[in-house]
Every structure is written in C-alpha cells, then in structure tokens.
C-alpha cells in the first residue's frame, strides 16, 4: 500500500503539488489523470523518493521511499526513454540489473524474462539507437522490471507511441496486474485511464479534484447522457439520465425515427465538469 498524506511541493512560483492525500491499494492499477503540468510527474517522483515533498508524508508499505528497502520494491518507467542508446539492449539491461546486486544466474534469468515480456528477445544484441519509438518504450519498461518490483510507476508510458505498440503496452500493464503488481499510471489520455485503471485520481494544478473508479467518477461528475434524435419532424437534442426511457417518449404520436445518437458521459466530461476546462487544454 502507498499512502500520501497532505503532500505539497512548490518549484519557485509554481505549486506543483498541493495538499495531495490518497491511498493506493496493493494489486490495483491506479491512474493519475490530468492535463500537462497538473503535477502528475511530480507526484510520482515524490512517491518514488526522487523528489522530497515540502510538507506531508509518503509511505510505501510503511517505509519511506528513499530507503534502500523501499527502493528494491520500486520500478520506475520514466516519461523519457531512459536508456543508453549507444549500447545494445542487452548491455542496458545488464547494467541496470547490476545496480540491484543480483547474482549472475538470477540476472540472466530476469533479463531473459524481461526481454520476452516486452517481446524484444530477437533484438537483444542490437544497439538501442536503431530501435523504433515503440521498441524503445518496451525496452524502457523491461529495464524497470528486472528486479521484479512490487510497485511499478509508469509516467506517461505511451507518449509518442504508435497505436500497435500502445495496445501491446496496455496488454503488458494488464498482465503485470495479473502478476499481482501495483501499478501507478499517469496519463492525460482519458481512454487509457478508462481502459486500464481500477481507480482514477483526477488532478489539476497540483490538487486532487476527485478519486474513484471510472464508473463512480462518471456517475458522480459526468452528468447526463446527451441524446440527439433525428425524426421526420426534425432534429431534437436533450440530456437524460435514462436515454432509452426518454427516447420512447419522443417516439410517441406516430413520429418516424430517422437517426439517434446517445453520447454517454466520460472522463473528459468529468474533468470539464470538475475544472471548467478540457483535459487537453
């Protein structure tokens, strides 16, 4: 379990994180959703012990994240491709594995598993600079899994990734959840949060705006569905909590239906309703 209590962090004039408090349970995929500059990366950096908070408290299974014991449980997939491009994939993995003081047998075993997990075993001896963006992202993930961490922090892992690699990455995230890993996933794509996350924390300007499951957030902050109906008598638009029931009402009195669109509320709407701004503003 990861516990944040009233965490705040300021960089000069910018309040990056403002009194953030929540708990992340073991084995869940926890999403941090917000626009660029919302404080997601800083929050992850504080949770990993990379940045110290100005105030508040962070605990990872009761440990301070900066301790050696806690660090062994942390796997960080940075937003940037944090690899040595001049070296081969294998050289990179060997180096990062050595930082965790593994014996050779375990190291080789973990390197093979990681390469297989991201489907790069055939490219192990190639230099990273020859990899596509998607392959680099996959190797970036593999490098973070070498020591079999319990808590995996993914900071915008799909940035600049093609749709095929993105889907492969989604599968990997879900597979890691099946292995019992706790995953903290930051994104500004609501589709990713909706697809992957058990719970989502919506953050804006460093503040926690809402925290719940995707359905819970939509129910609470998404508002009504938007229904657009085209009949022989013209176009009609209305909002509804129960579109099917309200549609039946519209279709009475021999009105002929030509087209109907029901737009259910989503996390974009949730964000809009919470902040008055679009997620991608």
């Amino acid at each position: 379990m990861i516990k944040l209590e009233s965490i705040s962090k300021r960089f000069d004039a910018v309040q990056a994180v403002d009194n953030l408090s929540f708990t992340i349970d073991r084995g869940e995929i926890f999403g941090l959703l917000g626009p660029n500059g919302a404080g997601k990366s800083t929050s992850i950096a504080i949770m990993c012990g990379l940045v110290s908070a100005d105030s508040g408290k962070v605990e990872l299974e009761g440990l301070t994240p900066t301790t050696i014991k806690a660090r062994k449980k942390i796997g960080l997939i940075p937003q940037s491709i944090a690899l040595y491009e001049e070296l081969t994939a294998l050289d990179n993995l060997n180096f990062f594995a050595d930082l965790y003081n593994m014996d050779k047998e375990l190291k080789d075993q973990r390197i093979n598993w990681s390469l297989e997990f991201v489907n790069l075993q055939d490219r192990a001896k190639d230099t990273v600079k020859g990899f596509s963006g998607g392959m680099k992202r996959r190797l970036n993930l593999a490098a973070s899994l070498l020591h079999d961490p319990d808590y995996i922090f993914m900071d915008e892992p799909t940035a600049g990734v093609d749709p095929q690699s993105r889907n492969k990455l989604f599968d990997s995230v879900l597979e890691l959840k099946e292995f019992g890993k706790t995953i903290v996933y930051t994104t500004h794509y609501m589709e990713e949060a909706e697809k992957l996350c058990d719970r989502v924390a919506i953050v804006d300007q460093g503040k926690l705006m809402a925290l719940d499951t995707v359905d819970g957030l939509i129910r609470a902050y998404g508002g009504e569905s938007q229904v657009t109906v085209q009949t022989n008598q013209g176009l009609e638009q209305f909002e509804s909590t129960n579109p099917a029931k309200d549609l039946v009402k519209v279709l009475q009195d021999s009105v002929q239906l030509e087209d109907v669109t029901v737009r259910r509320p989503d996390l974009e709407r949730v964000f809009l309703n919470l902040t008055g701004r679009q997620l991608r503003d």
Partner: peptide
Amino acid sequence: TLGTVNRLAVAPI
C-alpha cells in the same frame, strides 16, 4: 538529460 539518472536514483544504491 536522458533521464537515466532517475533510474540510478531509484535503484538501491
């Protein structure tokens, strides 16, 4: 600049 320093910083060293 590469961000590899973050990997080093979260490693148990």
